[in-house]
Amino acid sequence: MSWAAHEFENFALLKKFGVRTSYLGLLVGALGPDFLTKAWTYYGADNPAQFHRGWPGLGFTTSLGMAAIAAAFTYWVSKGHKAWTWGVFIGWSAHAITDMFDTAGAMVLWPFWWENFSFGAWKYGAGQGKFGDAVAYYSSLGFAMDLLALVLLLVFAWRTLSRDWFETMVRPVDGAWDWIQTKFAMPDRALLAFYRGFFFYGFCRFVSWSIIVHAIEGWPFDLSWGSPFWVAPYQPW
């Protein structure tokens, strides 16, 4: 699975799609697949990879088909709000595609194709528990994936983090921002911070876990394909 890359890619997608998508829709889409499965993956499943990414299990939630279902549901609930509908579809799809990079892969073409597609760049480490997963991810090419996503965002999409972008490209297409501000009596600077919140969280998550894993716990880097070497290759099939 990917970690901070999921938080960073939303802002790159926002740059690409502009006012055609709602940021909050992208966010819900990006969080959707893991929100439905993550806790049980770490703390309850006998075979986390099968439960999270495979079948029998909830692997179908990380797929383009499920992105379409979630988008259709959003269209119905929002009474035809196109920016939210596209946001959920694009965010959910991006999550599924990014998850193809680990050894478990994702059932991206469900329901037309029930097998997983995987590039196998780093090992799926959820079978190690949350801490072990962090160690595996931030010692492998997963670390490089997060770093690449961060660099791409900071080079090509950094303006999406500005107040001007938020006020002219994000807020006008989505009435939910006004609702949030009124509901919680937030000043503009707090609403802007909430918008930036997942970038902030992704950045801090990347920096903190990298320090914990390597500087504090002393784990080595293994940046070979299919790394790290110490994780058993859990498979969802």
């Binding site: 937030m186 000043p187 600077r189 707090a190 911070a193 930036r196 919140g197 969280y201 801090c204």
Partner: peptide, 15 residues
């Protein structure tokens, strides 16, 4: 380090 506390922390901080 979780996706509830992280975004809320910076919101409250900036507020």
């Amino acid at each position: 380090l979780n996706w509830i506390i992280g975004p809320l922390f910076i919101t409250v901080w900036a507020w």
